[in-house]
Design a protein around this nucleic acid. Structure first.
Length: 454
DNA sequence: TGAAATGTTGGGGCG
DNA sequence: ACGCCCCAACATTTC
């Protein structure tokens, strides 16, 4: 590009890593000085403001990333505001000749990026975007008819048929920084909770950042991966990877997971779950309002009940009187995380025993999960509700007592999070499981009749 | 990546 | 020896 003199900006978003970061690698290769930028955008309409737990993670991940960038010889610059304003102003400020970023797939985000790409190119900048955060981009995995898949298994098959995803890229060996570029102070963003400081449990449970993500992955590989197919279903053992928040913030890439795990016992079973993540981003790409709108629109007719403030609070705080549900909800509140098996049970309980709109639960998880992302959180809630793409059939109602028998047979998980279990202090169930199940099936019958789906 | 209801089969007790 | 009943175990269907 002719006008491409001047520093390179690497605009990081959901890719807070120095390894396997194509935008960063391209900037390093370009040769000009590099400035790495992160913009906290709480102003662009259509981009969901981060939930509280995600803000906590973001703060810590950015702090960790700033050190890594520093070690490479450049610096991480923090700015705040609508990206459509901040980015062009920053380009002028540093006299940039190029700007690189890794692509994102949400609706509002794509609009922002596309608009910036064309306006900055008009101004003569070298603007490049890269494929970095999903194994296969949504528009590349299509049916024979050229339409997006609605069902996971054929989606995954087609995805595998595209061949091995590319190998991960090494981190740049060093960078030439741009001196004297002002940055916001991370602390000023107030991403961390203060009064009250509810993050103690998060600090105990997690270490955000790229290095910790790889340590966590290696721990998983050396302990639980080989028995993943069984181990992942038992919340007291918790044989899951705990990669989700790191994937959410891009501390690690799916390419890195793929090439580390595909040849290891248990690896393919795990990578299939990574495939679900791709599938969910594919769904979001084709339906940007996924957190508001049923994929199967006949569910618009579902007669949800508005929960009383008391009942909703009981669910949120883990006082429903159903031990497995309460254990999960308390784990979530304390650690910003819930075991996957228990997520399904807790979600099913809200939707099908309390008859509460899945959006209410999605919204709570959005605020409390460290791994909430715009695709997986709504897609998984819709999966449980039965309204989503390739969702669980509507009549699949979990019985939380049976689930507890099957997957927490000794009650270890339940007692860990609900220590008062079995005493007078533990509440009576807020609903009758048998009756509410029957109510849910009757309610879904209305959907079935009004929709004509099967 | 369910649960419950319903159906089928076969062994054993017993008249 | 036979029919009948009960019931567990398993399979299928239904929600």
């Amino acid at each position: 590009m002719s006008a491409s003199e001047g520093p390179s900006i690497v605009w990081l978003r959901d890719d807070l890593r120095v390894q396997d970061n194509p935008a960063l690698a391209a900037a390093a290769k370009r040769g000009e000085p590099v400035v790495v930028l992160f913009v906290l955008d709480e102003e662009t309409s259509g981009i969901r403001p981060l939930g509280g737990a995600s803000r906590w993670w973001l703060h810590n991940s950015l702090a960790s990333l700033a050190k890594s960038i520093d070690d490479l010889g450049a610096s991480l610059v923090l700015r705040r505001g609508a990206a459509a304003d901040v980015i062009p102003a920053f380009v002028d400020e540093v006299g940039a000749g190029a700007i690189f970023w890794n692509r994102r797939y949400g609706g509002a985000q794509r609009e922002v990026d596309a608009s910036l790409k064309s306006s900055l190119r008009e101004r003569g900048l070298d603007v490049q975007s890269f494929h970095a955060n999903v194994l296969h981009e949504p528009w590349t995995v299509l049916t024979g008819a050229g339409t997006p898949f609605q069902v996971f298994t054929p989606y995954w098959k087609a995805s595998l048929a595209l061949g091995d995803p590319r190998k991960p890229l090494a981190a740049p060996k060093s960078l030439h920084g741009v001196p004297k570029v002002g940055s916001d102070e991370l602390d000023e963003w107030q991403l961390l909770p203060t009064r009250p400081d509810w993050a103690e449990g998060l600090r105990e449970a997690w270490t955000p950042g790229e290095r910790a993500a790889h340590d966590r992955l290696e721990h998983f590989v050396s302990t639980d991966l080989h028995d993943y197919a069984d181990g992942r279903d038992h919340p007291s053992e918790d044989g899951t990877s705990h990669m989700s928040p790191s994937l959410r913030f891009g501390e690690i890439s799916p390419f890195q997971l793929w090439h580390r795990l595909r040849g290891v016992t248990g690896g393919p079973a795990y990578l299939r779950e990574v495939g679900w993540r791709d599938f969910n981003w594919n769904i979001l790409f084709h339906q940007p309002d996924l957190h508001e709108t049923n994929v199967h629109r006949e569910f618009d007719a579902f007669p949800w009940e508005k929960p009383s403030a008391k009942d909703l609070k009981a669910w949120q705080q883990g006082n429903t009187g159903i031990p497995l549900v309460d254990a999960g909800m308390r784990q979530l509140w304390r650690t910003g995380y819930m075991h996957n098996r228990v997520r399904m049970v807790a979600a099913s309980f809200l939707i099908k025993n309390m008859l509460v709109d899945w959006r209410v639960g999605e919204s709570w998880f959005w605020d409390t999960l460290v791994d909430a992302d715009e695709a997986n959180n709504p897609a998984n809630w819709q999966w449980v509700a039965g309204s989503g793409a390739d969702a669980a059939p509507y009549f699949r109602v979990f019985n939380p007592e049976l689930q507890a028998q099957k997957f927490d047979a000794h009650g270890d998980y339940q007692r860990r999070w609900v220590p008062e279990l079995g005493t007078d202090e533990y509440p009576e169930p807020i609903v009758d499981l048998k009756e509410s199940r029957a109510d849910a099936l009757r309610a879904y019958e209305l959907v079935r009749q009004s929709g004509g789906r099967r």
